[in-house]
Write a protein that binds this DNA or RNA. Sequence first.
RNA 1: GGUCCGGUGGCCGAGUGGUCAGGCAAGGGUCUGCAAAACCCUCUACAGCGGUUCGAUUCCGCUCCGGACCUCCA
Length: 474
Amino acid sequence: MTDLFLHDSAARTKRRFQPIDPAHVRMYVCGPTVYDLAHLGNARPVVVFDVLARLLRRLYPKVTYVRNITDVDDKINARSRDSGEPISAITARTTADFHRDMAALGALPPDVEPRATGHIAEMIALIERLIANGHAYAADGHVLFSVPSFGDYGKLSGRTPDELLAGARVDVAPYKRDAGDFVLWKPSDDATPGWDSPWGRGRPGWHIECSAMSWKHLGEEFDIHGGGHDLIFPHHENEVAQSVCAFPGHAFAHYWMHNGMLLVDGEKMSKSLGNFRTVRDILAEGPWAGEAFRLLLLRTHYRASLDFTMEALREAKAELDDHYAMLSRAPAAPGGSAASHLADWVIAPLLDDLNTPLALARLRDLRTLENAVTVGGSPAVAMERAGLAAPPAPGVAAAAFREAAAVLGVATGDPAAWLQGGGDDAADVEAAIAARLAARKAKNWAEADRIRDDLKAKGIVLEDGAGGTTWRRA
RNA sequence: GGUCCGGUGGCCGAGUGGUCAGGCAAGGGUCUGCAAAACCCUCUACAGCGGUUCGAUUCCGCUCCGGACCUCCA
């Protein structure tokens, strides 16, 4: 395997990935604020960084992937006020919903999933350091980060503080020394969650939690920080400011990765626009929908914006149908070096800034190769692309497919379950197939076709192959 | 208004200074009792206008269009 290259948002270019410690790669990704069901846009970073985590685990002996849960936030407080549901109930339920939805998308859990409310002490410690270092000040019950105290402020998002202020959409609070200063800690009234602190009972600002949790679980400096593109400013810009100023001499995240936005009808899906669709909505389409949506997400490069359509979801399902059909008919074969070599060929595009669309195209070539040697046909074109001089033995391309697909987290399920699951009439289908076989032996084509049409009406598709008749649900 | 990203064939979507992306859809074919599946073939595009170059879809400039960010956001 060759080197891994990642697009670094801070450098605005692709950089060769050089881990701080090759024996232990560390990655932090911004997780959800748990006050509502995850929408489609929330799923994109989860799936994208799930693939990156899988890839890193293939390349390095140890990977620690941290993704937080934000369970203290004014949106949660507002939700509780509106609905009357206790905050703890909202966050517990929404966290469980999030876990279930992301599992349905085939996303493996992160190694550590810290909760903001479990890291209040670390946040306070961080704020105290910032005050001691002259980068923060208490005012009117608040603690604010002093933006002018950090010369590199704006470097990540590529703006100057002046530019940022030019279009600011908010009124400047009177207790701010500088209009760009942002809140680290704010006072809570009796009806609002709060923790005792040197500045009185209060709660953290939005950005300090990620600085605290990444510090606690990954240290002052770590390899990769990920999240949605819309988080670059202000969230990540402020995180950098907090962490670098709290720990002078440390660079915080070495690589910043941001996924593009998911659009619906050409516009960003967001709660404020009210055009969001939940992951739950998609999962309701059928047992296939979670994996199909995952594939849909990976069919577009992670940094490009992606316009979601139901048609694209159905196309992704059709692609999985074909993948699983191939896997179900391919003979078992030992992995071996031929298979590993082919798997590496599929995985290689991922080393170039996670080029999942190209990797998926090569995965299809593996399917073509296996089909050609298993079912019949010419493997020539796929062979040429894969750089093969001779067709692989039956089962080898399928073994390579499974190995590569595991890195993408796509088509990793049981083929029979995918193709034939979702019903309890399997025995009836088998009986009908046997009856049709008898009719065919007797050259009673009318009866054979009647049985086939009968099954088709029930959503069962028959396929007569060299090895007998197989069936699947449409 | 400022900053940034992008416009690839009917649709989706990689990539490249000069010989192939790929998928879906469509049409044709091989196979099949007929189908289905599989495989093969066809469909040859890079928003527009300039510039650099022997040569530009690829680099540069301008224009048009779309999107994101500018202290809620994945």
